[in-house]
């Protein structure tokens, strides 16, 4: 186990190093000169040269890359060209909204998904089951931005209960969280259902039944125990992806989270913010994936690692 952990961490480091190269490459290939953007229309040549020097853009690319990675190693994500704040500060400012969104939607999706999935497995091949299967597929198939607009149309325009968009406390995160939860709930319900069905079909369930244990209790105990691994994986991966920025949802609801920060900084050619943020997101994503894998083994000691 320990060896496995070390190996995973090493490979994670390798991947993250690769990510820095990818990000650096992409960011520097983005057309449009950030200096031009900052100085406006008629900058003098001296002004351009001065700003280039100030931002360190006059250095050769490998020096710029080395400086980017060097700073990362010291935990410095860079400093925004536009606001003058460190990228870390920018992220800290935006993180709470994204985190809350991810948290609420995952909780919502998990509760709905598991409950519905269990019911549908227990009632396999009844109309309840079919309904659940159908609606989970709808949830998975519907574009998030469309669910969002639909919810806004119903609950903000037709029945003015919720704000149309913008952040104004917990209340304004309800619709976005539901939006995000829809697809996840569908996935979780499907996972739960199929895992439960596998279990129900297995022999020891019949054995348990023969022993006369109460039917529902038994299904829940054995079924959930076995469903828990794939569902945990799914939740973990989704949570990681959500933390990485629910870009579309944040855009529709005008929420100032990490996703909208990414879009804005690309639009403004704020190279340090793009680099730092994308790296942060990749880091977060990788860490959650690792945790999910570790949880796996915790929940199911049968899983062995080479």
């Amino acid at each position: 186990m320990q060896r496995y952990l070390i190996r995973r961490l090493l490979s994670l480091l390798g991947t993250l190093l690769g990510v820095t190269i990818l990000i650096f490459l992409l960011v520097h290939l983005i057309p449009g000169d950030p200096v031009q953007y900052l100085l406006g229309e008629h900058p003098t040549d001296e002004a351009i040269a001065a700003l280039n020097a100030q931002l360190g853009l006059d250095r050769p690319w490998y020096v710029q890359y080395a400086s980017f990675v060097g700073k990362l190693l010291q935990g410095d994500l860079g400093t925004s060209y536009i606001t003058g704040y460190t990228v870390w500060q920018e992220i800290v400012e935006r993180f709470p909204i994204t985190f809350q969104l991810a948290l609420y939607s995952v909780i919502l999706a998990t509760v709905i998904g598991i409950v519905v999935g269990v019911i549908s497995a227990v009632k396999q091949n009844t109309w309840v089951d079919r309904l659940v299967v159908f609606f989970s597929l709808i949830g998975i198939s519907a574009p998030g931005f469309w669910i969002a607009l639909f919810l806004i149309w119903i609950f903000a325009y037709k029945l003015p209960i919720f704000p149309i968009s913008g952040y104004d406390g917990f209340f304004s995160l309800i619709l976005p969280s539901i939006t995000l939860a829809m697809g996840e709930a569908g996935l979780i319900a499907r996972m739960t259902r199929s895992s439960m069905l596998d279990v129900i079909k297995q022999d020891y369930m019949r054995t348990a039944q023969a022993k006369g244990a109460p039917h529902l209790w038994m299904i829940l105990r054995h079924g959930l125990q076995n469903a828990v691994i794939p569902v945990i994986t799914l939740i973990g991966l989704e949570f990681g992806a959500l933390l990485a920025g629910a870009i579309v949802t944040e855009t529709v609801f005008s929420l100032q989270g990490l996703g909208s920060l990414a879009i804005e900084s690309i639009g403004k050619r704020d190279l340090p913010t793009i680099q730092g943020l994308v790296f942060f997101v990749a880091f977060l994503f990788a860490i959650t994936n690792l945790i999910v894998d570790l949880l796996y083994s915790w929940f199911d000691p049968r899983i062995k690692y080479e």
Binding site: S11, L16, G18, I247, V281, A286
Partner: peptide, 10 residues
């Protein structure tokens, strides 16, 4: 792995 390290939409 590097490509997968970033959320696909990002």
């Amino acid at each position: 792995d590097i490509l997968l390290a970033l959320p696909a939409l990002l």
